[in-house]
Amino acid sequence: MKVLEYTPPVPKEDSVVVDEDILPNFYDYFHRHKQLQLTLIIKGEGTLMAGNYSQTFKPGDIYILGVNQPHIFKSAPTHFANPQKGNSHAIHVYFDQDRIPNAFFSLPEMESISNFLASTQNGFQLPSEYAGYVTKILLKLRNKSNLDRLLHILKLFHYFSQEVRGWKSLGSGFANTSLSDYEGLRMNDVFQYTLEHYAENITLNRIAEIANITPHAFCKYFKKHTRKTYNTFLNEIRINEACKKIINSHYDGISTIAYSTGFNSATNFNRVFRKTTGMSPRDYIREYKSKVGHWANS
């Protein structure tokens, strides 16, 4: 088991490094690092966990992950069912602000960029309407030299600070709590088990056993580090998976989705789905189909 702290492939002389991953699956551990991370998903899908937040990810998504923000891009089960290189393809840009003198960011011309970087603690998802432009820049960064990479990433940060509106926060409104390496390993085990067994009846005793603490201690521990109960977290994962099945048309009906994602009844599934997404499953399906139809005709 790898430790929580992760060191990106960053040469000593570079403050910006571009890493292109073409692998059977995404890096499979809940981890953090001191560099700000900008990620473009080119191929592959799954669940993103960032701090105490989780959601599905798909090709075309672009994310900013804050300095030392624990995160994992957990590949969908289909990646592991057919483990071949190319299941996951992403470009990760690592920006180490500590390698640039503070006086540089104190310049008047850098004010908007400095303010933007300071706001990224909990991470962001780029709104889809800006993804085409930003994707072109990130693809070009692969072939840029050291200085060109730095200049281009600063211009990109300036664009983010001045032009982009409607960022989606990857935070719940609470600051990320600090995790020791040992706690990071424990949370990694809990997250991994949940993602792999969400469709099963995960009891409190079982998940506490995974964390190697008593059920009572686990409830307090999980709430402390995520600001939510484990049952709420588990339901969010299940609803994320249900939404993926709807989008991929992997269902024969509402009841099928409910039971395949771990719910013991369609009624309970409907209640949790509405609470999580703000709409019923049928309304979600109807809205998704209307969007698909609009895209097809546009």
Rank of each mutant, 00 (worst) to 15 (best):
L150M: 04
G293Q: 14
R32G: 00
K2T: 03
E5H: 14
P127Y: 12
Q162W: 03
K85W: 13
Q35D: 10
Y288W: 08
T56G: 15
F30V: 02
H89E: 08
Y182A: 12
V17I: 14
R149T: 01
A199N: 12
I137C: 02
G66C: 03
R282K: 15
N82P: 02
K245P: 02
I100C: 04
P24I: 00
N25W: 13
K43E: 13
S119V: 04
N212S: 15
D98F: 12
H225N: 01
N87T: 03
L36W: 06
L195C: 07
S119G: 03
N25S: 10
G44A: 05
G166K: 04
L147Y: 11
R165T: 03
F273W: 06
P127K: 08
G293F: 12
Y182T: 14
Y198H: 02
A103K: 10
R271N: 06
T47M: 07
Y259D: 06
L65N: 05
S112F: 12
I62M: 02
F233A: 00
Y6F: 06
E236T: 11
D283Q: 14
S280I: 08
I41S: 01
S88P: 08
E5P: 13
I213Q: 09
L195G: 01
L126E: 02
S145E: 11
S145V: 09
N122T: 10
T203V: 09
T261I: 04
Y221K: 05
I41D: 01
A199H: 13
I42T: 14
T232L: 11
I239M: 07
A175M: 02
G166M: 00
I257L: 01
N176C: 07
K244I: 10
Y193L: 00
S145T: 12
I41M: 07
N297S: 15
D19A: 10
P70I: 04
R99A: 02
T47Y: 04
H33T: 00
G173R: 02
N82G: 01
K34Q: 11
K43T: 14
E109D: 15
S114C: 06
P127A: 01
F191Y: 14
P281V: 05
Y27I: 06
F191P: 00
K155N: 11
D21E: 12
S265D: 10
F263T: 03
R186E: 00
I72C: 06
N270R: 14
I153Y: 00
N231C: 04
S119A: 01
Q84I: 13
A76W: 15
G293E: 12
A90F: 13
F104S: 07
E236R: 15
I137L: 09
T277D: 07
K2L: 09
N25K: 08
H92R: 06
L48N: 06
D28F: 09
G66I: 05
E241W: 10
H92E: 04
Y221L: 08
R274C: 07
D181G: 12
F104H: 01
I254Y: 05
N146E: 09
A118P: 00
K12F: 12
